[in-house]
Structures are given as C-alpha cells and as structure tokens.
Design a binder for these strands. Structure first.
Length: 419
DNA sequence: TCTGGGGTCCTAGGACCC
DNA sequence: TCTGGGGTCCTAGGACCC
C-alpha cells in the first residue's frame, strides 16, 4: 500500500501560518513576476478564480472581492516544505518527495490500522507546522492519488481516505478522467471522445487500444487503476539530466548590458545547482526571446548550444561560456522578455573526462567554488558573486510587489508576537 | 518480376507532472 | 501594458552500422 500526503493549497497555507488574518478570506499567490495565479484558497476557488489565470485580467475582480494577493515567496515555501517532509519521514522508512507539497509513503511491512495512521500523519503535520495536509491511501500510486482526492474534496472524510476493495469501484465511477494522475488535457479529450468519462470507463477499455493510443505510459496508468502496481517508490531521486535557470524580466529589456547581467546570473545559478548535486555539465545552452504573447510586435528568439571543453560546475567557467554564447545571439532592436541558461550532459563530478589540452587549473577552481559556497551559506547568496552578474538590483529582476517576509529563513524577518 | 534482417544512436516533437 | 519556472518520459523517423 501507498499513502499520498498532499498539502492543501500549499502556498496559501504557508502564508496563512504567519498571517492568520488571511484565514477565512479568499487568498491567491501569484507566479514569478506577479504573472499568473498559481495557488488559491478554497474561498478563492469558490469565487471562480482559475488556476494559471493571468493576474492583470482579473485585477479589478480581485479588488472588488477583497481577495488577498501575494507574490511567490519560494524561500518561505521551500523551508516549510522541508519541515513537512521531515515529519512525514518519521512515519515511514520509505519516503518519496514527489514535489514541493506532496510525498508518497511506502507502507509495506508497517502493521498499522490505515485510517488511524493517515489521521496521525495529518494531525502531527498540522500541529508541528500549521500546514493542513490530506492523506490518501491505496494499493498503487495512481490509486493513492485518487484516494487523496476524496480525502480533500469530501468534507465528511476530514482530510483522510483509505481505498478498500469495498469502496474502490464506486470511487472509480465518480472520478472524472481528467482528474487521473497522468491524464492531461489531450488524453482526456481523446478518452471522452471515445465515451470514457470516468476512471471506471477507462479501465473497461481494452489494453491494446490504450497502449496504441496512449503509449505504454497510458497502459501503466490503466493497470495502476486496476490495482496492479507499475510505478515504484523512488526514495532516492536520480541525478538530474538537465538543469535550467530562466526568468521573465520584471520589465522589457532593450539594452544588451542588463540582459548580459541576467544571463551571467542564470549561469552562476546553474553552476550552484550542479555543485549541490555533485555533478558537472558538458553542454551549455543560452536562450533569449521577446514576448511571444504579443503578435503585434517584432518577435525574436534564438538559442546557442555549445559543448564545453571539459565538463564543469565552476561558476567562473559557466558564466564565461554563457556570456560568450550570448554575444552570438543578441540582436539590438527588440524588446526582450525572457532569458535562460540550460546545462545538460550531466556527469558525476568524480567521473569527468579530462582533456590533454585543458588549461584550467581544476583543483584550484574546485577549492575556490567550495569557499564561495561556504560564504553563500553563511552570508547569503549575494555576499560574493561574479562581477559580470552586476551589482545592485537591475530592473530585469523579478517583479514581486506583494512579497511576504522570509519568516523562517532570515533573522531580520522573524515574526513579531505582540503581547 | 524479384532487392534481408538485425541493430544503435540521435533529434524533434508531443505528452505529461508540480 | 500585463501571461511562471522548473522537469520527465515516450515515439517516430532518419542516419548509420554489419
């Protein structure tokens, strides 16, 4: 059996922990640059606010309905996530952290009464962190996901639900295909056009048809719905195959210099992510583009891919090559909206293929980066950086007008309790 | 008239997740 | 005016090998 623990409206819940005035009110959290709605409280959902809705389209509506609006605060959400996951880890030796707000727990060999177990998880996470979680339990990961839906959406279940041989058929019949984990918009459309409207309808289609139309991934989902476990727990996340750092700019950029700073910053960030997972990248790509949503303005989008002489995780090297590539693709005369750096061909740092013609003093660089990371850990990521990243706040930086304090990760932002 | 059978690697594009 | 930022997996088709 598997349990899926999923934090309710996670980003909104994080904001509410430190700002209880938000309780009972409609609250939304916006994406980077305050662009789209990416989290909604139940009250906001009831107002009909859609996921991924651009904020500017509903600005008046938000104001009129007195919806509390927050910018994304990933420092806060990431830290709260870590706390929740630590608690979940106390309930099982097999924990798969699936995303920032959900985790699978392997229940093999745990001699427990399942509903009491689920309730204990919910209670402890709520008590220790203030974050409400829903817990669903089922014989496969897809069914645990499905159970979680009934834990969350049916008030009588009070946040926990266990699938049993007795209730499974009824749950499948009440579960719309687009709600199934792994069925997105396209497959949902296909299934509905073939008369399969619920999870129950899906498992009544033939294996052959599902395999043909939805590849093996679709067949796996069908088997999982039937109770045949095809997806195993991944307790140790595999090393990433690609790492990307990209941002939309806070305002359109027409000059070369600020975009250059942004690209340098993204490259340095990729380098840091590589070092954190103890790996190096052999290929680097830089991309820039204009605002693709506006058909009335001249569009430009280019990327430049280059193979590095020797795989590396050095900020200095990656920034150097990223800027060099940037020079080859930048063209003046456009309003740029976004840029990014992507590194791939990632190898463990102790298995880097050397080169006879290598001129870089690798050992020195490695020690330098280690020192840099120690300084960043202690004094913050801005304490020391590559000069090309620029100093101060370029106006390419994110727009975050409604940012809450970093209550749990910055001493100056720690919460004040008034007597 | 008739033209094998077995592979690998790479890329682009499309599907999906949060 | 204004629309996020990460990722993964699968397949088809082409180039190539013997």
């Amino acid at each position: 059996m598997f349990a899926l623990a999923d934090c309710n409206n996670f980003y909104v819940s994080c904001e509410r922990v430190f700002n209880p005035a938000l309780n009972g009110r409609p609250v939304v959290v916006l994406s980077n640059n305050d662009g789209c709605v990416i989290a909604r409280s139940n009250e906001a959902k009831q107002l009909g606010i859609q996921m991924a809705q651009p904020a500017f389209q509903i600005a008046a509506f938000l104001k009129k309905n007195r919806v509390a609006v927050h910018s994304s605060n990933y420092a806060l959400y990431g830290d709260m996530s870590r706390r929740v996951m630590t608690i979940l880890g106390e309930f099982t030796p097999e924990l798969e952290i699936y995303s920032i707000d959900e985790a699978f727990l392997g229940l093999a060999g745990l001699p427990v009464e399942l509903e009491a177990y689920a309730r204990a998880i919910r209670n402890r996470v709520l008590q220790y962190t203030g974050i409400p979680v829903s817990v669903g339990i089922g014989p496969t990961k897809v069914l645990a996901k499905l159970a979680n839906h009934f834990a969350k959406k049916v008030p009588e279940n009070q946040g926990v639900f266990v699938l049993t041989p007795e209730n499974t058929a009824q749950c499948l019949q009440r579960f719309a295909v687009e709600e199934i984990w792994g069925i997105g918009r396209q497959y949902a459309k296909l299934l509905r056009s073939h008369g399969a409207n619920t999870a129950w309808d899906l498992i009544r289609l033939s294996d052959g048809w599902v395999r043909r139309k939805m590849t093996v991934a679709g067949l796996r989902i069908k088997k999982e719905l039937e109770g045949v476990s095809c997806l195993s727990l991944e307790t140790a996340p595999p090393a990433k195959q690609a790492i990307c750092t990209s941002r939309s700019f806070g305002t359109f950029q027409t000059e070369k210099a600020p975009i250059r700073e942004a690209v340098a910053t993204f490259a340095a960030r990729c380098a840091f992510k590589l070092r954190r997972q103890r790996s190096c990248a052999g290929v680097l790509m830089v991309f820039i583009h204009t605002n693709e949503f506006n058909p009335n303005e001249p569009q430009y989008a280019r990327n430049a891919v280059r193979r590095l002489p020797v795989a590396t995780s050095s900020s200095l090297e990656l920034v150097h090559y990223a800027l060099d590539s940037f020079e080859t693709i930048f063209r003046p005369g456009f309003r740029y909206k976004k840029a990014g750096v992507l590194v791939s061909e990632i190898v463990p740092e102790d298995r880097v293929q050397g080169s006879l013609f290598d001129t870089v003093e690798r050992e020195k660089q490695r020690a330098l980066m280690a020192a840099l990371d120690r300084i960043s850990l202690r004094f913050g990521p801005d304490a020391v950086q590559v000069a090309a990243q620029g100093v101060g706040d370029g106006d390419w930086q994110l727009r975050r007008a409604k940012l809450s304090p970093c209550y749990t990760t910055r001493w100056s932002d720690i919460i004040t309790v008034k007597a």
